[in-house]
């Protein structure tokens, strides 16, 4: 199962590295969103809960972009039938897709976090960096698990461009709550880490719950 998932994951990465479709779109979207927030909020620098909100809403919407594209290559170029004909566990498909989504998110954040720092924080992000990294990585696991599940749910619908964002956003509200609450003190002027443990625990719990739910139900998606 792990081997199959790894093969699928490598295939997705290869496709992405050669086309750079999702990653470019996500990075451009994030930077554009920061610019829009600058004008929308009419602020040169932001901090605290405002900064956390801007960061997490942007990352959430960038995730929506990636999730709507997650099964596009399979569907448009006929890989779907091959994938379903292959004698492999459906769970491997889920693990592979979630792993690719996770990798995309990390790759986007490698560009988006420094861009956020330069554009809206003026170089203060490093103060709380180790803790912020923990928050980001834990949140990414949740985003990736739920994202892969919703992508598969939406893959068979006629109106997936509409259904996927609508399904995904309410499901990810707890991630945004926990991640924004955890990073707000880390992004404020003297970086502090109040209640960090509680929010990290919350994120871990969410990740665990949705990875388990997804593993349990994914077998019933993408059949025939």
């Amino acid at each position: 199962m792990i081997r199959t998932a790894a093969i699928l994951f490598r295939k997705d990465l290869l496709v992405e590295v050669r086309t750079l479709q999702s990653l470019t779109a996500m990075v451009l979207f994030s930077v554009m969103a920061f610019v829009l927030f600058h004008f929308g909020l009419d602020r040169d620098t932001i901090s605290g809960s405002l900064a956390a909100g801007v960061l997490w809403v942007t990352l959430l919407l960038a995730t929506v972009l990636a999730v709507t594209r997650l099964f596009v290559a399979e569907r448009e170029q006929g890989g779907f039938e091959t994938l379903l004909l292959a004698p492999i566990d459906r769970t491997a498909v889920f693990v592979g897709k979630a792993a690719s989504l996770f990798t995309f998110l990390v790759a986007v954040e490698i560009v988006a976090l420094p861009a956020f720092d330069i554009l809206l924080l003026q170089g203060t992000i490093l103060d709380g960096m180790p803790q912020l990294l923990a928050v980001v990585l834990l949140a990414d696991v949740g985003l990736a698990a739920v994202g892969a599940l919703v992508a598969a749910l939406g893959a068979e619908t006629d109106a997936r461009e509409l259904v996927v964002p609508l399904l995904l956003m309410p499901l990810l509200v707890p991630v945004v709550i926990a991640a924004a609450k955890a990073s707000a003190p880390l992004l404020s002027e003297p970086a502090a880490s109040a209640h960090l443990g509680r929010w990290l625990l919350m994120l871990t719990f969410y990740d665990l719950a949705f990875v388990l739910v997804s593993l349990g139900v994914f077998d019933y998606l993408l059949e025939d």
Partner: peptide, 8 residues
């Protein structure tokens, strides 16, 4: 979103 998803 249940019904929009279901009926598409």
């Amino acid at each position: 979103t249940y019904q929009p998803m279901r009926f598409s």
